[in-house]
Design a protein around this nucleic acid. Sequence first.
DNA 1: GAAGATTTAGACCAGATGGTTTAGAAAAGT
DNA 2: ACTTTTCTAAACCATCTGGTCTAAATCTTC
Lengths: 236, 236
Amino acid sequence: MRRGLEFKKKARIIIVDDNYEHLSGIKELIEIESDFDVVATATSASVAISLIKKYRPEIVLMDINMPEKDGLTAIAEIEKLDLGVRIIALTGYDDPDLIFRAMKIGAKGYILKTMASAQLIYAIDEVAAGKIYLPAALSSRFFEYFQKSFKEETQDLSDEENLLNYLTQREEEVLDLLTQGITYKGVAQKLFISETTVKTHVNNIFQKLQVNDRTQAVLYALNNGFLNRRKVKIAI
Amino acid sequence: MRRGLEFKKKARIIIVDDNYEHLSGIKELIEIESDFDVVATATSASVAISLIKKYRPEIVLMDINMPEKDGLTAIAEIEKLDLGVRIIALTGYDDPDLIFRAMKIGAKGYILKTMASAQLIYAIDEVAAGKIYLPAALSSRFFEYFQKSFKEETQDLSDEENLLNYLTQREEEVLDLLTQGITYKGVAQKLFISETTVKTHVNNIFQKLQVNDRTQAVLYALNNGFLNRRKVKIAI
DNA sequence: GAAGATTTAGACCAGATGGTTTAGAAAAGT
DNA sequence: ACTTTTCTAAACCATCTGGTCTAAATCTTC
């Protein structure tokens, strides 16, 4: 079988699936239909991790519906090892949340068990070639979920509702320093003003944000896009 | 031209591009090669927004490289109107950051001006049919950028380095309440313990996290994945 | 069952924080 | 020029917060 990989060595693969039948099926398929080298298989995530450390494969096919330790956690752990292993998630469900989480933690591909075997081989080819492979149908699901997440989480407040927009420039500066956990004294020094002035600003901030203390003010700022003006930040 | 849309009315389209030549070209292409109805065109984002409010098109083709008001901001504003308009971003560059931001704010498709005209029509077809369309090449770029963002922003600390992992269960509960901006008194009531006990816990938390006050503790918790254990959150 | 960790709770104190009022100077807007 | 907003600053006071020490009850763990 030639699939345009003549230019490099056979990629080594480890397959992980708690269902032994299925595991054997995939193993055979890959051995017969592709140029890849199945160096090991595992029926549990923890065994898989040991094997990966030992064999350092290029590719891991990981079933993410397993008892004991679930596949997503396993993927996260493997990614954390930073061995350059490229993981393809394998599952029966096209649940958008699963797809999203898998891609988020670093899976380089995601395919359904129900898909044709040729597609599995194709996915491995693509991922081995350094690409990310997500079938069109799953890609759609991913994007819908992705956009929905953002719509829900970002700026649920209009400009008028976002009380941060009523702060003056100086108040923003003060709040900025508060969000860094700096005391009144520290703020005063940084802004070259007296401590009592800082207090005045802070009190005005509290009133404008309708909160009672600095922690709440910081939380309000963080939750309503205060930092976003400076930096694009993505938190899990 | 029949493209499998016989079952529904001709979708109305507005095209936005500051380059008039290009605008006309696309308009003609769509009128000749597709079943869609170009109800208006605009050469600036602000005009486009008025037209969109007036015509309520199903689809908007938006060039995102424009002077004056940039296309991304325009997309965000249109999405905010929540008119059900499906926007396809159009640009000359396959800059992953642009792609990521466009998809993040709700673009339903993203195509390059350099792509074949048939692909443009195909993209419109797909998006009009309710799907999200991203050519494979751009999809790859998107995912690489997406995963890179997550890798950078999430958990830069190992388990041993993350001081949150040294907190006891009770301390976590207390910190959890602190991250909601609750006072000692409030925490005491919620946990049915005395205020002095809360203080003890808080002091232990400070020492373990190596911080001096509650704000810093909250910031540490927020920046090091404390909330992540409960909820998947995405902030811009 | 002994050793260690966790949770509970008190006392004492210094200093930080927050609420309120007042007020002058500077800047911005009309 | 006049008004409004913003930035500056002080005084006063109550409360909250944080640091330190001590210590008992309860859970774990070996």
